[in-house]
């Protein structure tokens, strides 16, 4: 009788509870090896990155614009490209933003799994950093509170849009990407059928860029996410924009597709700022991911010539 009574409570539920404990104990025993990073460091870094991105066009983008200038067939197109290079110079030297649209602050954070964030909430710290960077840098605040009703400016360009990834290691990598409205508005996600294949992808990108015309401020960097799910494709398209222009991606199949699409886009005639020419896109960057057997998601994130992003590794 006694044996039966003792056995009854030790059922499946009890054993599940027991399974929770070992990982917690392991974490405690490894705590000494975790690197601590205070949120203040992240806040300061974000404030600096907001300004750096808005005042300093990357060397890769400048080189791409210079290369385009050398190849551009249109006289108006060449004049526009010269002005854009001149603008980058003035922005750097006078600390005036490259573009009055200093963007929504998109922040990508890679957190090493051996990092312990201390001193508060990391997302709050990033938000404080955006507020500080935009106010002290005389950057335009473009965020409005309610998307379809009041649309009152929040006054400090917050909240940022933050994407987190957990990665191996003990570092914290923060990328700030001010994303202007003109190019973002002309971006899209298409849920293709598997049968649409590579040609379907090329057609979607071409239609997106043609339909966008001069509005997204070409010459563009075109970020494409292929596969995954709706949101995975969109995030890949945006992440693809962070790859330095001119640096080939690691996947040979995608490199070929990038070249094919770039060639197609530069045959559209749209040209710098849509005023005609052979420089419609500076680069096409693709990221891909496996997907459901029923799906072929394709996201196209257009990036204007003022391709701003700055990063730090803490």
């Amino acid at each position: 009788m006694m044996i039966i009574l003792f056995r009854l409570p030790v059922g499946k539920i009890e054993s599940r509870r027991l399974l929770v404990n070992p990982p917690v104990r392991m974490l405690k025993s490894n705590l000494m090896t975790m690197r601590e990073i205070d949120v203040i460091a992240a806040e300061k870094a974000v404030a600096g990155l907001c300004q750096k991105a808005n005042f300093e066009l990357g060397a890769d983008v400048i080189k791409a614009l210079q290369d385009s200038l050398g190849k551009e067939q249109s006289a108006i197109g060449r004049e526009v490209l010269k002005s854009l290079l001149d603008n980058a110079d003035k922005s750097l030297n006078k600390r005036v933003p490259l573009c009055q649209d200093c963007g929504a602050a998109v922040v990508f954070v890679e957190i090493g799994q051996d990092v312990h964030i201390t001193g508060g909430n990391l997302s709050d710290a990033i938000e404080r950093g955006v507020k500080k960077g935009y106010s002290e840098g005389y950057l335009r605040k473009s965020m409005v509170s309610r998307p379809f009703s009041e649309r009152v400016n929040t006054g400090d360009n917050t909240p940022p849009v933050i994407h987190y990834d957990i990665v191996p290691g003990d570092h914290l990598r923060i990328v700030v990407m001010p994303k202007g409205g003109g190019a973002e508005n002309t971006s899209r996600v298409s849920m293709l059928s598997p049968g649409d294949g590579e040609q379907g992808i090329i057609d979607v990108v071409e239609e997106t860029v043609r339909g966008a015309g001069g509005a997204p401020c070409p010459p563009l960097i075109v970020g494409i996410g292929i596969g995954g799910t709706l949101e995975k494709a969109a995030i890949m398209a945006k992440k693809a924009l962070m790859r330095p222009v001119g640096q080939p991606g690691p996947d040979p199949e995608l490199v070929i597709l990038e070249e094919k699409i770039l060639n197609r886009l530069n045959c559209l005639g749209i040209g710098p700022l849509g005023m005609g020419g052979s420089s419609t896109a500076l680069a096409v960057h693709i990221l891909a991911f496996p997907c459901h057997m029923a799906s072929l998601p394709v996201a196209v994130n257009l990036q204007c010539h003022s391709a701003r992003h700055a990063e730090v590794v803490l």
């Binding site: 005036v96 490259l98 009055q100 508005n185």
Partner: peptide, 21 residues
């Protein structure tokens, strides 16, 4: 157009065009 704020002593900040459509 919607400009970025002027720094002290400046007339205006950055002031390029926005999408007309």
């Amino acid at each position: 157009m919607g400009p970025s704020p002027a720094r002290p002593g400046a007339v205006i900040g950055a002031c390029g065009p926005t999408t007309s459509r």
